[in-house]
Design a protein around this nucleic acid. Structure first.
Length: 795
RNA sequence: GCCGGAGUGGCGGAAUUGGUAGACGCGCACGACUCAAAAUCGUGUCUCGCAAGGGGUGAGGGUUCGAUUCCCUCCUCCGGCACCA
């Protein structure tokens, strides 16, 4: 008996697949395509994490199955290599980030190769390759030209540890997602993308996507749509008008004061009217520094300052109202100003009680309790001509009456797109004293990232690029005069926002993508990656895709049709893997131990793909044992063995359906059942064995190719056709009918399919274990479920 | 607080539209092989009961001939958003 030496066997097949280029993406566009994509990895210095291969094995299995089914498969891989970790790694190890990235990519590739993936490496992309980021810059220029990229000096999130500005999406609460440091608000010059312009489409088109509900819901929450109205509250004795946003125009008569966010620009314009200016300024300064910390501490205690001498007029009833500034009103949401209705809003209520402002009930609702702030809808009271009206109706009526405007507001904020760090795509703009901001001509792209002596962030609000005079100083493309290059770089999320397009046409140097190729391959049919990208990468990519659609570069509204999120691989102790716990599992060690095939089979068998599951060395050993048994079976193949068409057909159907539905664990279970069956026999029919190998090939590509060859095949099993199941055989198979009496199972019998109801009933009554339960009883009802069961209701 | 997802043996987990709960694997027990062990193979493995039979899918109610699946109330865990007006 031969031995299953996975080391030598896997090496042999990996080399042969490479030699024969069997995974090369076909050029012809006649056949049906399948574009299956992994979220490409960040090539960190740590090497491959165990979570990576789980997703990659799934797409690999799927891709192999599709290829065997005759589809043109695009299953590429690449590197998302710009960004902070590479830069920090480079700083720490005193090497150029590009050198560090190349080194890490090499390591990742070796690790991936050992697991036997079917990626087409001719289409590899690397976001740090100037030929790649040339097009990232090109997209930025198009955004700029359409007015969707703008320069701003607003206060933004600043990480005092990473020394860069961040987008809202880069925060975890009030801390930096990367390093956990508390975020500060810092006014600085920055480039911002107008993603809010696409908020409505990003939200609406979610409905067209067959994604899992949780991801869609996360995006809905992130975008945060609310319908309401805006009203103008004029300030007495000035030209100033405060515009407020509310979702409850029906409560307008209950407004007893107005609150502005501390940063609200009206405060500056009202300086002469404000009698307690010193106090106001003190509060504003405090708020600017303290807000974030206080919010983290979780105190909801209301603070604020009355603007003495300032009165606002309620547009509904002409009432004169006091005006406050308070940090519970956010400058970034709505208009940065609210009308406060303490009777029907928890926060306004708390503030009003703390500051002694009157509280006026204007809504009476069912279930309203004493001492509780009623925030529901109801019947209007104390609302002049609108008394007695219902909330819904009153919203429109009062909006009209008080000359308000119906508006829709989003929680989503524009995408802060500049980073004050070295390792990113340079933003392709030039500042000129006469022409202002001028885009770099497209012919001059890429604007290459120059070498620099120190990659360390400066912390000054400028990137290290600002220190390279010979790079910064250039000629203005507009007037030919003196120009200075933009020194901010793009965030890590830029390159990953369109890479799936590049794979379709990776070598194109005259256009972002050849329209013919884009039309053929787009959209991505299956996209697989981590849940953590739900409100970042997946929103950014959808935004850029819609923009590319608008400018006619791509032809679909959405980039990714199906989305599967990889469930976390936990450590054996059930906790997250972490160096701190010392419970990290290294994929290389596992592959050494049991081989890539057993590793792959285990990863797919460990549980439902999208669910978090703890690693188990024992369970992985079980996967290895399973493959040993397949190996053993192959030595029992005999010409005179009886084949089992029913077993084959059942397994073919189950495995095929399960792979397409991403139910890999039950697919493997079906293969195990087949092996169990075949093992009962003294010898195995060639046809049965070949079917087993074909079905197992996507999961265990090396072993199956070896055994396939040993059966005399010259061509790789991965170029063979997926077997078809025989419908007739399945239809002619006997089925088991369960017999119940009063809903309790009392027996079963087997019969041919399609037997008439009457005959089934008489067969059921004759089942020995059923007879005693019917004796002396009257059958009141006979429930017959075709092909499944019969239930006698007796008394 | 709002929203989404999930609770099934000792463990990972299976169960078409409501139709034999616990497939498959791990572990464990016993047996075979062995001087012995490992490996391998065989048998058993939700629970109470000698058995017939009863109970059982987080808890309690309901609908139904029949509920892990549908409805109501509640508990627990995971994830997202959260002073968003």
């Amino acid at each position: 008996m031969r031995t299953y030496d996975h080391g030598a066997l896997e090496k042999k097949w990996q080399e042969r697949w490479h030699r024969d280029a069997i995974y090369k993406t076909p050029d012809d566009t006649e056949r049906e395509k399948c574009y299956i994509l992994d979220m490409f990895p960040y090539p960190s210095g740590e090497g491959l994490h165990i979570g990576h291969p789980k997703g990659y094995v799934a797409t690999d299995v799927y891709a192999r199955n599709r290829r065997m089914n005759g589809k043109n498969v695009l299953h590429p891989m690449g590197w998302d290599a710009f960004g902070l970790p590479a830069e920090n790694y480079a700083i720490k190890n005193k090497m150029h980030p590009q050198v560090a990235v190349r080194k890490n990519i090499k390591r990742f590739k070796e690790q991936l190769a050992r697991i036997g993936f079917d990626h087409d490496w001719e289409r590899e992309v690397d976001t740090t390759d100037p030929e790649y980021y040339r097009w990232t810059q090109w997209i930025f220029l198009q955004l700029y030209k359409k007015g969707l990229a703008y320069e701003s000096h607003e206060p933004i999130n600043w990480c005092p540890s990473c020394l860069t500005g961040l987008a809202n999406e880069d925060l975890e609460g009030n801390t930096c997602e990367r390093c956990g440091t508390l975020i500060e608000k810092k006014p600085m010059r920055q480039w911002v993308l107008r993603i809010t312009e696409y908020a409505d489409r990003l939200l609406a088109d979610l409905e067209t996507l067959p994604w899992q509900e949780s991801v869609k819901e996360m995006q809905r929450n992130w975008i945060g749509r609310s319908e309401g109205a805006e009203f103008d509250f004029p300030i007495t004795g000035t030209d100033e008008v405060i515009r407020v946003f509310t979702t409850r125009p029906d409560t307008l008569f209950g407004a007893t004061y107005v609150v502005l966010a501390p940063e609200h620009p009206s405060v500056d314009r009202l300086r002469t009217a404000i009698q307690n200016l010193a106090e106001v300024e003190r509060y504003r300064t405090e708020a600017a520094q303290k807000t974030e910390i206080e919010r983290t501490a979780g105190t909801k205690e209301k603070t604020g300052v009355l603007l003495e001498g300032v009165q606002a007029t309620n547009p509904a009833n002409g009432e004169s109202l006091p005006v406050f500034i308070a940090d519970y009103v956010l400058s970034t949401y709505g208009t940065g100003a609210i009308m406060a209705v303490p009777a029907h809003d928890e926060r306004d209520n708390a503030f009003a009680k703390a500051f002694g402002v009157p509280i006026r009930t204007v809504i009476q609702g069912e279930g309203a309790e004493e001492d509780m702030v009623y925030t529901g809808a109801g019947t209007l009271v104390n609302s002049g001509p609108f008394d007695g009206m219902q909330s819904e109706e009153a919203k429109a009526a009062i909006t009209k009456h008080a000359h308000g405007t119906q508006v829709v507001r989003y929680r989503l904020q524009d995408w802060v797109f500049s980073r004050q760090r070295y390792w990113g795509e340079p933003i392709p703009l030039i500042h000129c004293e006469t022409c202002g901001v001028v885009p770099v001509p497209e012919a001059d792209l890429p604007v290459r990232l120059p070498d620099v002596e120190s990659y360390e962030p400066t912390g000054t609000g400028e990137s290290p690029l600002a220190g390279i005079d010979e790079w910064v100083n250039t000629t203005c493309p507009g007037c030919g005069g003196k120009g200075m290059r933009e020194t901010n770089t793009m965030p890590q999320w830029a390159g990953s926002s369109w890479y799936y397009v590049r794979y379709m046409d990776p070598k194109n140097d005259t256009a972002l993508v050849d329209p013919k190729k884009e039309k053929y391959w787009s959209p991505v049919d299956i996209y697989v990656g981590g849940m953590e990208h739900a409100t970042r990468h997946l929103i950014y990519a959808r935004f850029w895709h819609k923009f590319l659609y608008d400018i006619g570069v791509v032809y679909t509204m959405e980039p990714f049709t199906k989305l599967y999120t990889v469930g976390l691989v936990l450590a054996e102790d059930g906790r997250k893997m972490s160096k701190r716990w010392g419970n990290v599992i290294n994929p290389d060690d596992m592959v050494d131990k049991v081989g890539a095939d057993a590793f792959r089979v285990y990863m797919m068998f460990m549980g439902p793909f999208e669910q978090a599951t703890a690693w188990s060395i024992d369970h992985m050993a079980g996967a290895r044992r399973f493959l040993e048994r397949v190996y053993g079976l192959s030595e029992r193949v005999a010409a005179d063995a009886e084949s089992d068409a029913l077993l084959r057909s059942r397994t073919i159907r189950k495995v095929g359906d399960d792979i397409l539905a991403f139910n890999f664990n039950t697919a493997i279970s079906a293969l195990m059942i087949m092996v169990n069956e075949l093992e009962k026999r003294a010898s195995v029919a060639r046809e049965d064995m070949e079917t087993l190998l074909l079905l197992l090939a996507p999961f265990a590509p090396h072993l199956t190719d070896e055994l396939w060859e040993s059966l005399g095949h010259k061509e790789s099993i991965h170029c063979a056709a997926w077997p078809a199941y025989d419908t007739t055989v399945l239809e002619q198979a006997e089925i088991t009918i369960v017999v119940q009496v009063n809903g309790k199972t009392r027996g079963s019998f087997t019969t041919a399919q399609g037997v008439l109801k009457e005959e089934l009933i008489s067969l059921a009554k004759e089942v020995p274990s059923v007879i005693p339960h019917l004796q002396g009883k009257t059958v009141r009802r006979e429930v017959v479920v075709p092909g499944r069961l019969i239930n006698f209701v007796v008394s």
